[in-house]
Amino acid sequence: MKSDLSESLFQTLQDAEARCHLLQSVVVHANDSIVITHAEPLDAPGPQIVFVNEAFCRMTGYRPEEVIGKTPRILQGPNTDRAALDRLKTSLQQWQPTLIELLNYRKDGTEFWIEMSLVPVANAEGWYTHWIAIQRETSDRKRLEAELLKTLQKERELSELRSHFVSMTSHEFRTPLTAILTAAEMLEYYGRNWTEDDRLEQLRLIQITVHRMTQMLDDILLLGRADAGDLRPRPGWFDPAAFCQLLVAEFQAERGSRHRWQVVSRLTHQTVYLDQNLLRQVLTNLLSNAVKYSAAGSQITLELSDRPGWVRFCLQDEGIGLEPQDFPRLFDLFYRGHNVGTIPGSGLGLAIAKRCLDLCGGKIRFEQMPTKGTQVLIEFPSNQAL
């Protein structure tokens, strides 16, 4: 059977007319797009199309009469790689077969990727008369490649975060643990000779250090809950002005009255419908930064206002401000500004604030003050009531 088929095909190929009919049938019915153009001109506007098969029409959305006489450049668009087109032109000028990937555009303007094999065709005298391009759509493959690259990039970022996390937590915990150990040893060996005030000072140091470590652990756990989708808003009605006054009073009590504080309310409604815990997380981290990065005696102002459907909190300080190169990475985990110097910190606060705001559909914006300091504007969507 195989021998009979081979003999029949051989006889067909010996007949020029039959061979031509066979090749025409292959081209017309091929699943891959086939385009035939004149060999020249290679410069603009380019060689004209003389034939396209049905697969080309299915791929691009064009009918044959819409492309015959035009050039393949009608398939190119703003995102077509110019470097790839330059390589293609070089191959054409050298009359060399080439294999290339291009981003093309369908008739409806949508993008699609193709892998194109292009070969020149010569006549009996050896003159090149046409180009034949066989094109296969590779959009799905390119999409999978992009998704794979994105996954690999995410894995690299996670690996870097894990390494950074181990390094950061080792350093951030080692320092307070050393302070606790030192204070405890001082109390053990010298406490009996100290005054009551000296002993209380060492105990306060231990308490403050433990509180700092506990806060860092709470921050890490909160980020874990947010990333796992276990943290959800639980809004309720409350007075935001009273809430902020109490929060600032807590800061003054815990951290001393080293700064001048002001809470200003320009609210038109007394109560709002928000999640108090998420609001506390956001404001606590922002207030902590304001205290940490501004000098003793400087002013810290928290102003409240509202507009239909939104409540705004504007925090201003007179601290070290922000460097322009830091703005794109302010909410990255463990990232700290270029100008923080030796001021201690974990680089978690703004990442936590941003996640809490995202959970509530809130917004945050930083502005550098004209003279010194930073202004932070945060907005929460809120139903309001008198």
Rank of each mutant, 00 (worst) to 15 (best):
T214P: 01
A226K: 01
G236A: 15
T169A: 04
T214R: 07
R199C: 07
K354F: 07
N285M: 10
A241M: 05
E254K: 14
E111D: 09
N383M: 12
E196D: 09
L75N: 08
D197P: 00
G224Q: 05
A351I: 03
V166L: 15
F56K: 11
F334G: 02
S257A: 07
M1T: 14
I114T: 06
T178A: 04
Q270T: 11
E54T: 11
R355Q: 09
A226H: 11
D219S: 10
S257P: 15
A226V: 13
Q24D: 14
P41Q: 00
L287G: 11
Q96S: 15
L92H: 05
F238D: 02
A39P: 12
N339F: 07
T214A: 03
D197S: 09
L330Q: 01
C57N: 07
R232N: 14
Y190Q: 08
A122H: 06
G191T: 12
S167G: 01
P78N: 13
D326C: 06
V26E: 10
L315A: 01
R63S: 05
Q270E: 06
T209G: 06
E323R: 15
E172W: 11
I208Q: 02
M116C: 07
K89P: 01
L13V: 14
L118F: 07
R204L: 09
V52Y: 08
M116S: 13
I36R: 10
V121L: 15
L23K: 03
D81G: 04
T271Y: 10
L287C: 08
V27K: 13
L177P: 02
K70S: 08
G361R: 05
Y293Q: 02
E157V: 13
V26F: 15
I114R: 01
N104M: 05
T169L: 08
H338N: 01
F56A: 05
S294D: 05
R365N: 08
R258Y: 12
Y273Q: 01
I220W: 06
R106V: 04
G321D: 03
R255P: 00
R73A: 11
E17D: 12
D15E: 14
D15K: 09
T110C: 10
M216Y: 03
L92G: 02
Q276M: 13
L161K: 08
Q384G: 12
P64Y: 13
T151P: 00
Q276W: 12
W310V: 03
I352M: 00
A351W: 08
Q375F: 07
A133L: 04
Q299R: 09
Q316M: 14
M1E: 14
A124W: 11
D317T: 02
E137M: 05
A385I: 03
M168K: 14
D219A: 12
F173K: 09
Y105G: 03
V291M: 02
A242P: 05
I378L: 11
